[in-house]
């Protein structure tokens, strides 16, 4: 039996509980909130702060933002580091080259990824799951080691050249390692699954009846593909493309391992600036500039993902 408690003591416990519950709630919200504020948001403010400081030979190697002078505190900030990014053509070239490499890698990934995603989405069930697992499987093995594997394949005396020489397709070994081509291969290889998964999630929902209706109304397969399938899978295309483009822009490991000394990418420049030149303010300015570059792609990704509902 549910006994109804007499109202006055009951009210007391209720308010007590409400108070406790409310505090518990606030506590639960506070835990992830504080963690992310301290270890995600504040670090950006620190980067922003250091990007307007001057490099100094000190520990840490930059000038303080707030300076205690005779008449209290004053702020010392400079845009010199940003100006420097424009003065030295190295940075501009690195930016343009990053955009170029990321863009073409995205296009190649789309050209390979779209047919694969389409093929998987149209496969009958047991096969479809198996193929999907095959796409995801490389994720779980070391990214670094998979990129490393390409060195063995692409280098002068590598597997690819040995194979092609044996077939007689070429007479001289191809020079691929330490060129931009190797970087393209590495990026497409690494991020192809990121392209395929959102495309698959979109294409698998495509209703067969739509394609049949289009055919029924007199459109050929090619016309149907360009007029029905492509427009409907646009959110998947955008999401997949951004998931390749965004990490490709900031990529460090692939150009460092597969690219040559001429391969310019901002991720690599930032790394060098920080570890080799120990110029923290310039490295910070490079980071901020990279973020600015990524704002539009990130917004596109958000838009595509909200249109697609879930996935990715």
């Amino acid at each position: 039996m549910t006994t109804l408690r007499s109202s006055s003591p009951w009210r007391l416990t209720a308010s007590g509980l409400a108070k406790l519950g409310l505090n518990g709630r606030a506590l639960v919200i506070a835990v992830p909130m504080i963690w992310l504020l301290v270890f995600f948001l504040i670090p950006f403010l620190v980067v922003l702060k250091i990007s307007v400081a001057e490099p100094m030979i000190a520990r840490p190697p930059y000038s303080p933002l707030f300076i205690e002078g005779q008449d209290g505190w004053s702020i010392k900030a400079t845009l010199g580091n940003y100006a420097y990014l424009f003065e030295d053509s190295l940075y501009i070239n690195a930016y343009l080259s990053s955009i170029k490499i990321a863009f073409f890698s995205t296009v190649f990934s789309l050209l390979i990824g779209y047919p694969m995603a389409y093929y998987i989405a149209r496969s009958p069930e047991p096969k479809r799951s198996l193929l999907l697992i095959l796409i995801v499987l490389p994720f779980w093995t070391s990214f670094l080691l998979r990129v490393y594997a390409w060195i063995g394949i692409l280098k002068g005396k590598g597997v690819l050249n040995a194979f092609l020489l044996k077939l007689g397709v070429i007479n001289e070994p191809l020079i691929i390692m330490q060129t931009d081509i190797a970087v393209y291969i590495g990026i497409v290889y690494t991020y192809l699954p990121f392209m395929i998964l959102p495309l698959y999630a979109n294409l698998v929902k495509l209703d067969d009846a739509l394609l049949e209706a289009s055919a029924d109304l007199g459109a050929g397969p090619i016309s149907t593909f360009f007029r029905i399938t492509i427009p409907l899978s646009l959110p998947g295309i955008v999401a997949g493309s951004m998931l390749v483009f965004i990490p490709a822009i900031g990529e460090f490991v692939i150009p460092a391992l597969l690219g040559g000394p001429d391969t310019l990418m901002i991720g690599k420049v930032l790394w060098t600036e920080f570890f080799s030149n120990r110029d923290w303010p310039v490295a910070s300015a490079v980071a901020i500039a990279m973020l600015v570059l990524l704002v539009i792609p990130i917004m596109l990704l958000r838009l595509a993902q909200s249109k697609q509902g879930d996935s990715a």
Binding site: L4, S7, S15
Partner: peptide
């Protein structure tokens, strides 16, 4: 009994 302030888990 006025149940306005009673949480779901305590209602009859």
């Amino acid at each position: 009994q006025d149940v306005a302030s009673v949480a779901a888990f305590n209602r009859p």
